[in-house]
Structure formats: C-alpha cells, structure tokens
C-alpha cells in the first residue's frame, strides 16, 4: 500500500516531505523508545509514536523509516519539522491514540487477516 492511501484512509495530516506519500509502506512499527526502534524497525516502515523529540528524525533516517505518525494530537516542534523535511521523512499527525492507530493500520495492511 502507498503511504498516500494510508494517509487518506485514516485522515492523517501530512506535515513534511509530501513527495514521500508516493512511497510503498512495507509495514509499521509502534514504540516510544528510540533504542527499540533502532533495533527493530525495518526499511520502508512507518513509525507510530508520541515522541516528538528531535532525535526521532535521525533514528527514522538511519533505519530507512519513511514516515513518522505522531499520535494523540501532539504538537510537533518546528525544528523537528524542519529536520524531517531535510531528511526526506514524511511526518504525519493524528488525534488517535497509538493503540487505535496501530489497530487500524494493521487492518489496512493485512486485509485478509481473520
């Protein structure tokens, strides 16, 4: 599934690097711990978190994570958005909680499940 389809299906708001919406999503990963994401996220994943620290961009970039979805309607600092644009990471926001968002993404990415 293209990131664009996921953004539309879940009414996410893309804040940075909109060219990235054409990319293919390989899967998703949910965590608020950078070490965990460093160890377990995969190339082409999208990352679900409520962490808005600047370091999330560096971690995403290092791991080939194409997009970060900030949950809970959390505001994203300007420096994070700027860095994400530079690093070509699509940062998105939603008012949904992490659990809810993960559940819905799981259904979208695994339509044959159940």
């Amino acid at each position: 599934m293209k990131l664009k389809e996921l953004v539309e299906a879940l009414s996410l708001e893309a804040k940075t690097y909109k060219d990235g919406l054409q990319k293919e999503v390989t899967g998703a990963y949910a965590s608020d711990l950078l070490s965990d994401v460093m160890a377990n996220a995969k190339d082409g994943n999208i990352w679900i978190t409520l962490q808005t620290h600047l370091n999330i961009v560096a971690v995403a970039s290092l791991k080939g994570v194409i997009g970060i979805i900030i949950v809970g309607g959390r505001k994203i600092p300007e420096d994070v958005l700027k860095k994400a644009e530079e690093e070509k990471i699509t940062v998105m926001t939603t008012s949904l909680h992490a659990f809810e968002l993960a559940g819905r993404i799981y259904q979208l990415l695994n339509p044959n499940y159940s």
Binding site: D32, L33, L34, S35, L50, Q51, T52, H53, N55, R74, K75, P77
Partner: peptide
Amino acid sequence: QEGYSTAPEWVRELGWGAG
C-alpha cells in the same frame, strides 16, 4: 508547554521526560 522537555536521552529511554 506540552511536549517541551530538557530531559536527557537515558531518561526518555526509561519512559519519562516527554514534556
């Protein structure tokens, strides 16, 4: 402000310091 924090990385790795 929600989300503003000066906590170091090790504190965030313990699940705190998210502002």
